[in-house]
Design a protein around this nucleic acid. Structure first.
Lengths: 149, 149
DNA sequence: ACCATGTACTTGAGTACTCAAGGAGTTGTC
DNA sequence: GACAACTCCTTGAGTACTCAAGTACATGGT
């Protein structure tokens, strides 16, 4: 039968379950969601720990609107600050604060533990893991990413 | 580096992209979302084309509340009806109408096309596909499904 | 210098969920 | 046969997004 459709639906369910595991642990220990962590991590990897909202949206697969809204609580709790661009007054960088960088490091420890726990089963050990990573990378690109807001 | 965390984040992105592809096509052709289709499909597979809301929630990985809300538009457009249980006045079955069954069949044709399109790439052909399906099945179970509302 | 067009971001309205609380019905126990 | 405890479902409030429209600024052509 329809393995392609079946597998797509399975992927959706797998993600739901996975996100819940991350959210549960991250929110209990650090008061953030997986979405928050993903955003902070993206900033942490950027040069100077800062990015334009547009680029952040692109990198995260969200709309610019979603990024604006997602940043608000992170700014409120002081993990991120808004920084203007002297060359272009339209842009508002989102920049990691020193506190933000520290907290991010702590969150990553938790997130890595959860991730390893998710994939602990024997099944993943024998190369299945790398294969999954490769296959997912392929899917990520998909012709219909959300992009403009 | 942290392949487990990296792969988890990848899975989240892959799902987002995938859902958008399905939603785009399904909404254009049939006026429903992938979530709607999943719900109808679940009913379509159940004995008598009907299920209790609780069981539907369990099967879909949603809360009972989410099911109640998700059914409203489907009832409104006549694809699903509410049916009482003569044995237990608490339960309200969600049942596929004849129209619902017809429309579901049409939607499935579209969804299957999208799914095959998603997995068309050569990479999937050589067994990678079945492997992915198996791996995702493993993840689906995860210790932290949402369940009660 | 001006203006059309384009880019960066925010905001209002709407959708799809969640959790917590509550109503209504059932069931096991004494 | 009464009642505590459980189950099924709905509802109010809140969150995390989406899309469409609007504001502010930048840029390239004339």
């Amino acid at each position: 039968m329809n393995n392609a459709l079946e597998t797509s639906l399975r992927l959706v369910r797998a993600q739901t379950s996975l996100v819940r595991r991350f959210d549960g642990r991250l929110s209990a220990l650090h008061g953030v969601s997986l979405a928050d962590l993903t955003l902070l991590l993206q900033l942490g990897r950027a040069e100077g720990g800062r990015m334009r909202r547009v680029d952040l949206a692109q990198a995260l697969g969200l709309t610019a609107s979603g990024v604006t809204r997602g940043l608000i609580p992170l700014e409120r709790i002081g993990l991120v600050v808004r920084e203007p661009d002297p060359r272009d007054a339209r842009v508002a960088y989102a920049a990691l604060t020193p506190t933000g960088r520290e907290r991010l490091a702590e969150m990553l420890v938790t997130a890595e533990m959860v991730a390893e726990d998710v994939f602990e089963s024997q099944r993943w050990a024998d190369g299945g893991f790398d294969l999954l990573a490769g296959l997912l990378a392929e899917l990520e690109g998909g012709r219909a990413g959300a992009v403009r807001g």
